[in-house]
């Protein structure tokens, strides 16, 4: 019980709750281990709190490799299973170009220009969400 306030571990990504939305801000280089840790934290937090949306802000990330790209896609898929929507916000142009050149177009992942646009997107009803692709028919 004394671990209620666990020391922030290096590379640990904080998950903030804002009403019905979880906000995750990624900064700088993200290690593979902390990306997987985030994946686990997110699914547990969603299951516990029953939020309806997750916003992942990656405007501070300079490099996204194929592993992180896959982790992001997996996070989106698993939050979908937990009845929440994930929006990726603020991707840099260079990162977008790199991902496309790698062939990782991340279909089915919702994207927004910045966190504000992402919040607006989540505030809208499910049917009105755009560019969701094949995930639209899920409840």
């Amino acid at each position: 019980m004394s671990e209620g306030f666990s020391r922030p571990v290096a590379g640990h990504v904080p998950v903030l709750r804002l009403g019905d939305v979880l906000l995750v801000t990624l900064q700088g280089d993200l290690y593979d281990s902390s990306a997987q840790q985030l994946q686990q934290d997110l699914s547990e937090t969603i299951a516990r709190s029953g939020v309806t949306g997750v916003v992942i802000d990656i405007s501070g990330v300079e490099i996204v490799d194929s592993f992180l790209g896959r982790v992001l896609a997996e996070i989106a898929a698993q939050t979908e299973l937990l009845a929440a929507r994930t929006v990726l916000a603020g991707m840099r142009p260079a990162v977008a170009i790199t991902l496309v050149e790698l062939g990782l177009t991340l279909p089915g992942l919702r994207t927004a220009l910045n966190t504000e646009a992402a919040m607006e997107l989540l505030a809208r009803p499910v049917v009105a969400s755009r560019s969701g692709g094949r995930h639209e028919e899920s409840p």
Partner: peptide, 13 residues
Amino acid sequence: MKTVAAARLMGAE
């Protein structure tokens, strides 16, 4: 298609 995909990743249609 690459340009379209990159723009979509950034949150623009």
